[in-house]
Amino acid sequence: MREIRYVDALNKAIREEMIRDGNIFLIGEDIGPLGGTFGVYKDLFREFGEKRVRQTPISESAIIGTAVGAAMTGLRPIAEIMYIDFITTAMDQVINQAAKLSFMSGGNVQMPLVIRTQQGPGTREAAQHSQNLEAWFVHTPGLKVVMPSSPYDAKGLLKSSIRDNSPVIFIEHRLLYFKKGSVPEGEWLVPLGEAEVKKEGNDITVVATSLMVHQALEAAEILSKEISVEVIDPRTLVPLDIEKVIASVKKTGRILILHEAPVRGGIGAEFVRQVTEKAFDYLDSPPRVLGGLNTPIPFSPPLENACVPQVEDIVGMVKEIVKEK
């Protein structure tokens, strides 16, 4: 199978879908000749023209609002928010409009809308360009939340998101854009709501999304001689395939959830709740969450690194949990 980069997998997904369905259009900042600040839309402007690749002023409310109005009236917009941090200026349109109008209309209107964005620390861009905000959207009924960790998932999940009739917040990771992975040719999808066991193991279940999947796999590799780690990527947080996680916990008896977002009020807590409710008797040790510190992300490299789980932190925490009785 050929290896392509995450960014190119996204590009292919969008291009294929745009060829398939003329109602799909792209809207966002600097998505024209530049092809988006990270190149996800490379060459699409040249191929599809400004009718379908609509570059906007810096007006996030209008970007999402235009997508909402267009989705209600029969188009299938893909709106890009350059950094997830910038979505704050469009939150009314995301939370009160996109997430709710189909519901509030009693199903009279549909909202087939994808909001693509990227997040994460690691590029020394400080606290307004480095946040992990997935929990906000998971907490808002009416939105689906997708976080692909590999080029394969990026392509398959984006295609499913585009074909979905609900609004989807599609969260990419900046540090994954240039990572390569196997992506088969041809037509296939990754359905929303299907977790994947990225590595099988027997001693502990580690749940991770996005970039953290890679850190978890690296930690599992380091630990492989002493501890058998199972790594599960839920791939989509809404809908959530909790059954696969529960099944794994029933096998391993231990669980660690990883994310870069601050632990306080983070998505890890939701896994802990569901595992505690559904598999309490199977647990050999308390479920744990390893996440970001409860602080804005600082600029300086050592400080930034200290704010999010590093591979050695994961290794340390897994060892600690497995020792617990």
Binding site: I64, G65, T66, G69, M72, T73, D92, Q97, L101, V109
Partner: peptide
């Protein structure tokens, strides 16, 4: 809301309709 007569809804958020109108017009 009544899509059959082009009624795209009222709104509980003051000012939220303007960007949505842009979207409908764009459509």
């Amino acid at each position: 809301f009544d899509l059959k007569i082009g009624l795209l809804g009222g709104n509980g958020i003051v000012g939220a309709g303007l960007p949505i109108a842009i979207g409908a017009a764009f459509s």
